[in-house]
Amino acid sequence: MEIKKKIILTGSFGVGKTSLFSRFIYSEFDEKYLTTIGVKVDKKTINIDNDTNLNIMLWDIAGEVAQDKVPLSYFLGTSGIIYVFDLTRPMTYNNILADIEYLKNILPEATVKIIGNKKDLVTTAHIESVISGLPVECDMTTSAKTGENVEQLFQSMGEALMI
């Protein structure tokens, strides 16, 4: 069985959304920082079980300092939200509670995953300190550069969407 779902990558600018997108879709990482303009859409199929393939339509949305600045229409029809923050920059998670509440308010049915990216740049102690200080639960920490936990992130999102 083939199922299609729309998933969005959102969060502040420069947190690595496009790098996660490229790592997941193309298995690539580029050191250069190119800001995303508008939105980029691509797809990848993941296998959920023997009978089910999930076609993920992944929307990489341009970063904004607050989620209420993102055009509302980009969020509509979304089944899964991956909210990304940068473990090295507090300004990307200082507003996390308001952002997540806003997203849950406009998309009450959607599955939300909160991701701390760029784990390759910080120590385990730093990661623990950042996560314990967050007002929301961080689902996973990833590194788009090394690829650590990227496949697992989308696999777990896919499985959550099938429940």
């Binding site: 299609k4 779902k5 729309k6 859409v41 339509m57 929307w59 229409s73 509509l76 029809g77 979304t78 089944s79």
Partner: peptide, 8 residues
């Protein structure tokens, strides 16, 4: 195309 999701 589904209006909001963009799914075919």
């Amino acid at each position: 195309i589904q209006r909001n999701s963009g799914l075919v």
